[in-house]
Design a protein around this nucleic acid. Structure first.
Lengths: 243, 243
DNA sequence: GCGCACTACGTACGGTGTACGTAACTAGGA
DNA sequence: TCCTAGTTACGTACACCGTACGTAGTGCGC
């Protein structure tokens, strides 16, 4: 009725079970799980209302009883995998705890490579996101700072992790929808890059690419970036700006 | 013919003008400009092959002579606006230069709010991206570090800027496609958040939201995050990790 | 037990990316 | 100089998308 009207709605605010009518055949968790299963297996682009409905075993339009818009389906998915975040008693060493949080987020994103693309601050208030944030703030209890600053740290850390994993996954995820392999594409791009650099217009880029990088350890690079960000927020280290 | 075969291709490697046949009616720059115009005006989702072709004034399928896949159209767009990056003679103060670069990127993203969504490392080797990277490396000449480390700094800085602007723009961009206003949606979400917090399960979140934030100055927050990241990379400051 | 709100779902519409076929055109090789 | 192969131009068609709408059937609250 007037339910589909142009009034904003947060999916978490509507009850799973309405008072009247027949009892819903699926729970929100069922739906999220189905969508996550599809995304894990076929990439985010495989998540369509039709596919999810088929995976659930119901008609396409029945899904709209549970999920008013596809955007809400995404919100369900993000919340579901956010629930995979393991929590622990804060150790007292906030840096160690935050490193652990970040690593956990990274492995989560490796397990669900579509997650970075859905990472959006507007999903920040789903039930499991609230739990996660509360846990982060608990880990930061030893830090002398306002909650505003702590939220900034969590946000920046999440952002950096998301960025890093996005980069790690970008080519892999991209090649999923392309009719050629990741290696082929890389080879062509590097060949083109080489031809450009050979022109001499980009001397520093040329130097950067002839420089022996040594063995590249993605994990180590990730760790280093992490530590740098945490260093920047450590109140015990000298700082050039007020917090 | 066998040109559309499953062989990877970088759009920058194919010549704008082929030897044979009639001369192309549009340049790559024309096409990129048309797409950018549409995205600026109607959001990234308004960029469809049909719309761009119409904006150019040609048939839909004619576009495919210039742009083999839509993905390449995106690549054209990112490169085009990357060309708006202004360059300057490095000042010798690399921190100041990098701050300037970051601010420029941010204003660029405010001018083209669809840019963050298209920021992908696979687009990193377009002509204007090469120019941009070379300029960044030139600004970092005073820094004693390998090019690898410098590239990491540029990457991390870009990532942080992208993250920040994404967050700034997320709700605004989202509300573009929704049938209600951003304020309405925010009000509903905050109301829900309040109801959750009132439950008492998230004491720190509750404290964070009752804490008087004072006047929030997005520019100042951005500047602070920026400085923290730069601090972390400054070799003249003590550091807890090898570079 | 009546009525109504809810569930279920088929159909249909307007949009998307793009494969394919055809016609016009032009530059290189004979 | 002419021929022909490769390009440009573009209409048609297909599979798929999100979702508005209408119609049954179901079971709770009054």
């Amino acid at each position: 009725m007037a339910d589909r009207a142009a009034v904003p709605e947060v999916i978490w605010a509507r009850p799973e079970r309405a008072g009247r009518g027949p009892r819903p055949a699926y729970s929100r968790a069922d739906i999220a799980a189905a969508a996550v299963r599809i995304a894990d297996g076929g990439g985010l682009d495989a998540v369509s209302m039709r596919h999810v409905a088929a995976e659930l075993g119901c008609g396409t339009m029945s899904l709209y009883n549970y999920v008013p818009r596809k955007e809400d389906l995404y919100e369900l998915m993000v919340d579901a995998v956010s629930g995979e975040h393991e929590e622990w008693e804060p150790s007292g060493d906030w840096r160690a705890d935050m490193v652990r949080v970040a690593h956990q987020t990274r492995t989560l994103m490796h397990r669900h490579p579509w997650l970075p693309r859905l990472m959006s601050p507007v999903y920040g208030f789903s039930p499991n996101a609230l739990k996660y944030l509360e846990h982060c703030l608990a880990c930061l209890d030893p830090v002398e700072a306002t909650y505003g600053t702590k939220m900034q740290l969590v946000g920046l850390l999440n952002g950096v992790v998301t960025m890093y994993v996005s980069n790690e996954l970008a080519t892999a995820e991209r090649s999923r929808s392309l009719p050629w392999s990741e290696e082929q594409e890389n080879a062509v791009r590097i060949a083109y890059l080489g031809s450009q650099i050979a022109g001499g217009a980009y001397p520093r880029m040329a130097a950067a690419f002839t420089e022996d990088p040594g063995p590249i350890d993605l994990d180590a690079v990730f760790d280093m970036a992490l530590r740098k960000v945490l260093d920047a927020f450590d109140p015990e280290r000298g700082q050039s700006s007020a917090n």
